[in-house]
């Protein structure tokens, strides 16, 4: 039982890892916690649904389509909204991201209605091993996320683009002197993080019904994971996501499952009380 919950938690955590990583990377470059991450996740799920059910594409192609759609949506939001407000400080950006979130959520609602939907999938039999049950969706999620994380890690740590992204997050004006334009790097970062959120949206749609409010179920755990890792720290966000996923699933031993988000919220509160910099560093204290 415990092993089963641990495994479920690991998969949940992996699913959270992508948007948490996206949130933290955007925070690094734009200095605000993007409220719209949940709505973007929903958009990803619907984009995947459109490709998979309406166009009849196989799921991997649907995921690629969702990555593209959400990536472009992020670039568009940046171009139309966030970049224009960047000089006005993070509170304004936060409020704007709430507006953006409302718009995206209601575009989905307008196009697809409130009814719950799901992907067109062949039902596969779960694998059983030593009393632990692993289903097809969980394996897909784990596989896709691990590959995406490895690719992203290589990109961030070993490529010139990754160096440029970290340089801009660290010190934009010095980066400009070094020939790294913040604007270009910001656009690329939005595109890439949007792709991560889009893929996560499709994976979330494997796990639960797709509806316009589905992103709200992930909002708090995603923020908790990013804070746990220290806002702005990519590795921290992934580790934080795994911990949150496991903590949420394990909590069902003692709490009703509907209280899983309360676990995430408590983690946020405890961290703010005792370790403001997250478990992995990153400065949070105001100026």
């Amino acid at each position: 039982m415990v092993a089963q919950l641990f495994l479920n938690g690991l998969v949940t955590g992996l699913l959270l890892a992508l948007p948490a990583l996206a949130l933290t990377l955007i925070f690094g470059i734009m200095r605000f916690a993007n409220f719209a991450v949940g709505a973007l996740l929903t958009l990803g799920a619907y984009a995947g649904y459109l490709a998979n059910v309406t166009f009849g594409l196989p799921l991997p192609m649907a995921a690629a389509f969702a990555a593209l759609v959400v990536g472009l949506a992020c670039v568009l939001c940046d171009e139309l909204v966030f970049e224009r407000l960047r000089e006005r400080g993070s509170i304004t950006l936060l409020v704007a991201s709430m507006g953006v979130s409302l718009v995206i959520e209601n575009i989905c609602r307008f196009a697809f209605g409130n009814a719950a939907r799901s992907f067109d999938l062949a039902v596969a039999r779960p694998i059983r091993w030593n009393g632990i049950r692993i289903n097809y969706e969980q394996m897909t999620t784990a596989g896709v996320v691990v590959v995406a994380l490895i690719l992203f890690h290589l990109l961030l740590s070993a490529s010139p683009l990754g160096r440029a992204m970290r340089a801009v997050a660290d010190n934009p004006s010095l980066a400009a002197v070094r020939g790294v334009e913040r604007r270009t790097v910001a656009r690329i970062t939005w595109m890439l993080t949007g792709a991560l959120i889009g893929i996560a949206g499709v994976l979330a749609g494997l796990d639960r019904a797709i509806d316009p409010l589905m992103g709200w179920n992930y909002q708090i755990p995603i923020f908790a994971a990013a804070i746990l890792g220290g806002l702005g720290s990519p590795l921290g966000a992934v580790a934080g996501a795994l911990l949150i996923g496991i903590a949420e699933e394990m909590s069902t031993l003692v709490l009703p499952p509907s209280y899983r988000q309360i676990v995430s919220f408590s983690v946020i509160l405890l961290l703010l009380l005792f370790r403001t910099n997250g478990l992995f560093g990153a400065k949070a204290v105001r100026k």
Binding site: R166, S173, R178
Partner: peptide, 23 residues
């Protein structure tokens, strides 16, 4: 610059690489 004249979260080698790779 006067302050923050290196990328603090990058290694020495990465700082040196970045010094020229985009120029």
């Amino acid at each position: 610059p006067q302050e923050a004249n290196v990328f603090a979260s990058l290694t020495i080698a990465e700082n040196l690489k970045l010094a020229t790779e985009f120029i």
